[in-house]
């Protein structure tokens, strides 16, 4: 699929904001529709787009919507910088620029037949949500499906209604933990890696997909390996500064990889040294 328009991968396509939803105090979801053809936006779980706000700039944001419903493109973003804050101020009906889909995807097809374990930290649930949709659309092709999700406080939990729905299903295992159990929280307290020790899965036939802060991914991978999971069966999604998203601007390099074109999803065993090298 073409990334940009006019044969130029740097030129954004225009998308209209159809719906806006506030997920948490600093996080929002946008439902987008292309202004001109093609009307559908096909992508693979784990891929991202460069999202452009007029006059402000462009940022790489993972797609958080349903890959089996390409008629709408959904992004979930935390407002933390210039562009994402400007994005947060956009209204329904306004236009945003999109270049993508870009990058590698979670290995949902390769993982068929396996138990699936998803480990998400904070906003890291957004790039994993397309995997959940995909798994649910092909539920019979997988073994156990486990989601372990950690946030700072109960107020930071994304997609609360969906999580409740998933939790009520017998064919999903959903475990949530928070760093600080504020308010009336009666669930788990502690880091998400604590949940790995007692998660039910067959370590010999499983695929783990991990997304969150680097330190969380590092310890999740260690926790999974402690449970006997091979490093080759663990996948992580990396984040780096990106200006182009297509391997030309040079910003997202870590050692010999470009996160934008070789990733963002990597096999943990291929890049494990990244996690132990400071300022790599």
């Amino acid at each position: 699929m073409a990334v940009g328009i006019n044969d130029d991968p740097m030129m954004p396509r225009q998308f209209k904001i159809q719906r806006l939803k506030r997920d948490t105090v600093d996080t929002f979801s946008m439902e987008l529709k292309p202004v001109s053809d093609p009307k559908e936006f096909n992508f693979l779980p784990g891929q991202f787009n460069m999202l452009y706000v007029f006059g402000v700039g462009e940022v790489p944001i993972s797609i958080s919507g349903d890959p089996t419903k390409p008629e709408k493109l959904v992004h979930t973003t935390r407002a933390v910088g210039n562009v994402t804050n400007a994005m947060d101020n956009l209204k329904k009906g306004q236009t945003i620029g999109v270049r993508g889909p870009l990058g590698t995807s979670w290995p949902v097809e390769k993982a068929e037949g396996n138990d699936i374990i998803l480990v998400a930290g904070g906003i890291g649930l957004a790039p994993l949500r397309p995997v959940m949709y995909y798994l649910l659309a092909h539920r019979e092709s997988y073994g156990k499906v486990v989601l372990l999700y950690g946030t700072r406080t109960p107020g930071d939990i994304l997609f609360q209604k969906e999580l409740e729905n998933w939790r009520s299903r017998l064919d999903l295992e959903i475990h949530i933990t928070v760093d600080r159990g504020t308010g009336s929280w009666r669930g788990n307290v502690g880091v998400v890696t604590n949940l790995i020790a007692r998660a039910p899965f067959d370590h010999l036939n499983c695929t783990a997909m991990v997304c969150g802060p680097e330190i969380m991914m590092r310890f999740s991978a260690l926790g999974l390996q402690k449970r006997g999971v091979d490093g080759k069966d663990i996948y992580v999604s990396m984040e780096r500064n990106m200006k182009c998203g297509i391997g030309l601007c040079g910003h997202c390099q870590i050692g010999n990889i470009f996160v934008c074109k070789d990733g963002p999803v990597f096999r943990y065993s291929d890049i494990r040294e990244i996690f132990t090298r400071r300022e790599f």
Partner: peptide, 16 residues
């Protein structure tokens, strides 16, 4: 080959 991509918006706010 590293490059930055940035926006400059016009004073009127209607061009970039």
């Amino acid at each position: 080959f590293c490059v930055n991509i940035k926006d400059i918006s016009g004073l009127e706010g209607d061009s970039a």
